[in-house]
Structures are given as C-alpha cells and as structure tokens.
C-alpha cells in the first residue's frame, strides 16, 4: 500500500501498520496484562467460593453498572468521532467530541462514587466476603484509570485548542484515543464478570 493510500492514523507507524506510537501499545498491552491478572484472580476466587460469587452480583447495583457501561461505550464513540473530525482538519469539532468524552468520564466517576456509597449503605464492603474484595479491587483500579484517562483527554483538548495538532500530525490524540478504548475494553469485561454472571 502506498503512503498516500494509508489513512492518517497510520502515518507515523506505517511501516509496521500500527495506529499510534509503539510506546502507547507497550502501555496498553501492559495495562491489559494487569487487568488479565485481576481476571485470573476473579476466576480462581470464583472456583473456590462458588456460593458467594453466585450470590454477590445480585446484591450489587446493576443499574449503576449498566449506566456506567453505556457511559463508557458512549465515551469511546465520542473519542472515535474526535479522531474522525481531526482527519477532516476540524480541530474545534474534535475538541468538542473530546469534551463529550471527558463529560462521560466524569459521569462514570460520579456514578461509581454513588455506587460505592450505596454499597456501604447496604453493608457491602471489602471485608464482607471475597466476592466484594475482588469487586472493590478491580473496580477501584478501573476507577483510577478512568480518572487519569480523562485527565489525558483534557491535555489533548488543550493541545487541540493551541493548534499543535494538524490534519497530518496528531499522534498524541490517536495515542490517548487508543488508551481510552483500552479502558473501555477493561470495563466491558468487568461488567459481565461482576454484575451479570451468577
């Protein structure tokens, strides 16, 4: 494929046909491995404690979990639209889509805070049983990722507004977009494991 035929996403890594930078992929694969270890812990704990893992999800706030899944999927969609807008050389539109994604990140954090408060009112805590210990460990870890992922998007918005990115060169935006999709991938895995499967 000639360079001219390549989509802008691949401009900087076209020889390897990799979107974004190699560095962000090292980070993404490391983070995915970290979450994979947590999921292995979940499966082992589930095998050894089938009763608490059967009963645990029913006591969680499924509505909050569902809303957060919708919010995360929507934020990923907004990030895709931000990248598409930048490819059309529309930096302001791109920034607006990213603001929508940041709003989703903030909404996620608020819903999760509400959910933790709700759990406490129901008497659900890390020491309740191993299901809730795993639930808090995994979801709080993800909560932190959403926090710093949102902060990274704010940084990209700042750079968009200062005109640093161009239609041809906006690898920083691509990298943050890819990282945010990784955070979304982690959540769509967490949702069925902790809220749905009984």
């Amino acid at each position: 494929m000639s360079e001219a035929a390549l989509p802008p996403l691949f401009i900087n890594s076209h020889r390897r046909n990799i979107p974004g930078s190699l560095a962000i992929w090292a980070a993404i694969l490391a983070e995915m491995s970290e979450f994979a270890i947590m999921f292995i812990v979940y499966f082992l704990a589930r095998a050894h404690n089938p009763v608490v893992f059967h009963e645990g999800p029913a006591k969680l706030n499924t509505t909050a979990g569902t809303m957060n899944t919708i919010v995360m999927l929507s934020s990923s969609y907004f990030v895709v639209r931000a990248v598409m807008a930048m490819r059309e050389n529309q930096a302001k539109t791109s920034a607006r889509w990213l603001w929508a994604a940041v709003a989703c990140g903030a909404t996620y954090l608020i819903i999760k805070y509400y959910e933790y408060t709700w759990n406490t009112a129901q008497g659900l805590a890390t020491e309740t049983n191993i299901f809730y210990a795993v639930y808090y460990y995994v979801t709080f870890n993800h909560f932190l990722h959403v926090g710093w992922g949102s902060a990274a998007m704010l940084w990209v918005i700042y750079r968009l507004n200062t005109g640093i990115y161009t239609q041809q060169e906006h690898e920083g935006l691509i990298n943050v977009a890819l990282y945010w999709h990784m955070i979304d991938l982690a959540w769509i895995t967490i949702f069925p494991l902790l809220y749905v499967i009984r």
């Binding site: 569902t66 929507s74 069925p192």
Partner: peptide, 27 residues
Amino acid sequence: QTENKKFITKLWLLLISLTLFSAFMAE
C-alpha cells in the same frame, strides 16, 4: 467519511443495545 460516521454510529448503538440486553439478562 460520512459513511464511516454512519457505520461507527450504528456500531455504538449496537453495543448499547447489547449492554441493555445483558442488564435484562442479569435481572
């Protein structure tokens, strides 16, 4: 680009629908 946007929007709506289906299954 317009076709791509429509396609991505359809995928987003499909993902939302599957999430709501999962929540329904859970409950």
